[in-house]
């Protein structure tokens, strides 16, 4: 039996890059949601949560239309000389970021809200500007929440299937990630290979949920101090 590990590395690359992008764009969204009194808050929160309830195929379908050569974003990327995103690795990253957005934003939002207004008010009376307060008080205090959000988003991206099938297809080395590879092996009755990859996924999922629980326990202990 030869086990092709290329899908594994591709999956890890996709999940790492997606998590990084999510931390950079999801954290400010979560911070805004925790601080704003705008009436748009619930609308934005709903949009962010939408991937939780939409079938991945629906998400993938619209992403395909938007990013494709006839879609508005596709036209933009072509005009910029980037080509179109569907059936490419960057396209997968865009899809994964949108698909996993709630898994980062919701824990981060809760973590920012749990801080309450008091530490930020204290920092203001100690001469910290709003940006300074975010980096010196809010971010360190919300770190456990951001971390658990990051782990969840990473794990969720690793397990992604529907969206990838819709916008990525099955191109070895480009879009053929673990879940697609397992599907492939099963289709061609390669049970041994499917077992190795699937078993590895079960172990990975177990470790992720365990680390989340341990992190949660530590957060509660800190909270009690």
């Amino acid at each position: 039996m030869t086990l092709n590990l290329e899908p594994l590395w591709l999956t890890l690359k996709l999940a790492s890059l997606t998590t990084f992008v999510l931390l950079v764009i999801g954290t400010p969204i979560a911070w805004w949601l925790s601080q704003t009194r705008s009436r748009m808050k619930q609308v934005v929160a709903t949009l962010v949560a939408l991937p939780l309830v939409l079938p991945p195929t629906v998400l993938g379908f619209y992403l395909l239309l938007l990013l494709g050569p006839a879609g508005p974003i596709g036209k933009l990327t072509e005009a910029l000389g980037l080509g179109t995103l569907p059936f490419t690795f960057p396209g997968l990253v865009v899809g994964s970021v949108i698909y996993s957005l709630p898994f980062l934003v919701q824990p981060a939002h809760n973590a920012f809200e749990a801080i309450g207004s008091r530490p930020l008010e204290v920092a203001a009376t100690l001469r910290a500007s709003p940006l300074d307060r975010f980096f010196s008080v809010a971010l360190p205090l919300a770190l456990p929440g951001l971390l658990s959000g990051g782990i969840l988003a990473f794990a969720h991206t690793v397990g992604e299937f529907g969206v990838i099938l819709m916008i990525g297809g099955n191109i070895p080395g480009e879009t053929k990630v673990l879940s697609i590879a397992i599907y492939d092996h099963v289709e061609s009755l390669e049970w041994t290979q499917a077992h190795w990859l699937a078993g590895g996924m079960v172990l990975f999922a177990f470790l992720v949920v365990l680390s989340m629980n341990l992190l949660g326990q530590r957060m509660r202990q800190i909270g009690q101090d």
């Binding site: 008010e121 204290v122 920092a123 009376t125």
Partner: peptide, 28 residues
């Protein structure tokens, strides 16, 4: 607030949990 030369002591001490006493003192 951060431009006013005030010192504010709140009802609860509200120390920053992620900083040591020394770093709390030096924050402002």
């Amino acid at each position: 607030t951060h431009r006013r030369p005030i010192g504010y002591v709140f009802q609860e001490a509200s120390l920053f949990a992620h900083l040591s006493v020394r770093d709390n003192l030096k924050y402002g």
